[in-house]
Design a protein around this nucleic acid. Structure first.
Lengths: 350, 350
DNA sequence: TTGTACGCGTTATCAT
DNA sequence: ATGATAACGCGTACAA
């Protein structure tokens, strides 16, 4: 019988990639593995000579450190989990783009998952992420409570985006919803609108409430009050915006302007208005929120409140990187600003 | 001097998560680690008694296998890399959604990265993915050559989406561009259009070429020829579609219909038409391709060729799973179909 | 069927 | 400044 070769017999099912190990680099450079590791991580000072020899060996062998082994030995995976709500939406798309850029440049991988606006989906997503031993978490506010987030934050650094949360357990980056909604309302008021309808986000969400409150307050400051008949609730999606606008129209109360709590709902509302034979902005002025990329290409181009979602994502990533490096996180948010395009105009004279 | 405790002294910087190890489960259940491993992976048959004991121990301890260690030991990371071109676009958004669903259900993590339509970005992205030891790759066709992809496919199973490629090195899932473009052209012809402009995708791309060729052939079959003056090139983005339409308009050649190679360009084109004072569909009929979610909410709602991108993503993921399990991949693509909405109509009589 | 022993590639500790 | 050596948590060939 054939005796199988004594060693390496299980090599077959090992990682298929160009398996150049740190070990081999060490041999080639005539140093110990520890030294190579030290150079790779800057953990300690090594002589310029060996430094050069190792760098050369790395080049020649085309060595790439194995993050899996790194993770096992060092307890870090150099990956961070990102919980979005709807991975396919333009809003989260831009956010992911911003996050990816920052994290990738820092050598971290991003694991994007969807929470689907469902508490248990979000929970499951985070559990999966944690079981993958991510080094940190970026969570876009959804249904998960602050208390639940706190528990995760006890295990890894966590940055919450889209909802302010007190306490020091985790960092939260909120949008300036109040200022944004104020800007939108002010713009419509200054154009001369007095009957302004409003599409709010889901009532469970703090930011939706903030936008609504600020909107109402701005109205009140102008001596107007928010007519409950001119308020409808949506779910931050195009179809929900369309339905909300339909409902508003069906109530029969006239309005000359409509403010939707986000661009996607504004786009849905625009279709409802179009279907009802109403022109934007001649018959109804329309304002959105976010300035998602497509806002510029809606017809007519949408006046909206810009809060660069990509930039916010990048800021969240940067802050998380700070947290991971035990640095104080620096977050410098650009305040939202009004972008006036072609969906708003003065109300028609009668 | 104090002698430090001999063991566990470095526990501090280890993974922070509920570190229950397989080892501990084994002890608790009174079996060997290997037995636990076998039960976890179904690698061998174990007695019902121990089976139960281990399951109980797992429950009680709340054990979750560490994928990092698993990866090191078994050479598999249960993660797959997905190379999109623009992570923020609605097209890839829907694709990612489809992929995520399938892969997550199978216990695989998805690593989504952007190729940005740049060959070296794509290459770098794949290198990063490979260095992370992904078990497989799903690549959305971009600038990377088949030859380059073949090299990666030699290391891990690879599914290419969006471009057919001969050979058995990797699986490719193409869209039926020919049928899709034919459907669009046929629709416009049957409405009575004879002067049809066309916005093509980047000329480097096989699918763009296929759509153009099929479009041209359908015209020819109807006794028409494609006027070079009525063709402009875009880059599958809204701005490029807008520019292409502007260019078309600037040439002065009249056309009563416009077919854009994808929805995003159609949406950009719609704005250009709007700006030029042309109404859709009264003055110009407009057809897109893909049926991205927003197509339904453009004004007017866009007639387009539907190829469910989410479903295609899911199919790609399913096929990759097959490949990973050494099963023959099963791919059953739904053929594209025309979705007639409100952006097309018969040309005006003169 | 089950347990033992070793290895996966790297980092951290402890000497030197 | 540098090198042994021992983990990290799990899978698996081999022996029993």
């Amino acid at each position: 019988m054939n005796t199988p070769p004594p060693t390496r017999s299980r090599r077959a099912n090992a990682a298929q990639t160009s398996t150049v190990t740190l070990q081999q680099v060490a041999e080639r450079a005539g140093v110990s593995p520890s030294t190579v590791s030290r150079i790779l991580n800057g953990t300690a000072v090594v002589s310029p000579a060996k430094q050069a020899a190792v760098q050369a060996a790395i080049q020649e062998l085309g060595f790439r450190p194995n993050p899996v082994a790194r993770g096992l030995a060092g307890g870090k995976t150099f990956s961070v989990g990102v919980v979005t709500q709807t991975i396919s939406s333009p809003f989260y798309g831009e956010a992911m783009y911003g996050i990816e850029g920052v994290l990738d440049a820092a050598g971290y991988a991003s694991l994007f998952v969807s929470g689907n606006w469902r508490e248990d989906d979000e929970r499951k997503a985070i559990e999966t992420l944690m079981s993958r031993r991510v080094d940190g978490l970026i969570v876009f506010a959804g249904r998960l409570s602050d208390a639940a987030l706190k528990r995760y934050a006890a295990e890894v650094p966590l940055v919450l985006v889209g909802r302010r949360s007190p306490g020091r357990q985790f960092l939260s980056i909120g949008f300036d919803n109040r200022l944004g909604a104020h800007l939108a309302a002010e713009h419509l008021l200054s154009l001369g609108h007095r009957q302004i309808a409003f599409i709010t986000g889901a009532h469970q969400h703090a930011d939706a409430l903030e936008r609504r409150t600020a909107f109402e307050e701005t109205l009140q400051a102008a001596g107007l009050k928010l007519d409950p008949d001119l308020v409808a609730e949506g779910a931050y999606t195009e179809p929900s915006g369309q339905q909300a606008a339909q409902a508003l129209l069906a109530r029969g109360k006239p309005f000359t302007a409509l403010f939707a709590s986000n661009d996607q709902m504004a786009i849905g509302a625009a279709l409802a208005l179009h279907r009802a034979g109403l022109r934007v902005p001649q018959d109804v002025s329309l304002v959105g929120f976010d300035d998602v990329a497509v806002a510029e290409f809606s017809i007519p181009p949408l006046t909206t409140v810009r809060q660069s979602v990509g930039e916010i994502g990048a800021q969240a990533a940067t802050a998380l990187l700070d947290l991971l490096a035990d640095r104080p996180p620096r977050v410098t948010l650009t305040p939202p600003r009004l972008v006036v395009r072609e969906s708003t105009a003065a109300p028609r004279k009668r």
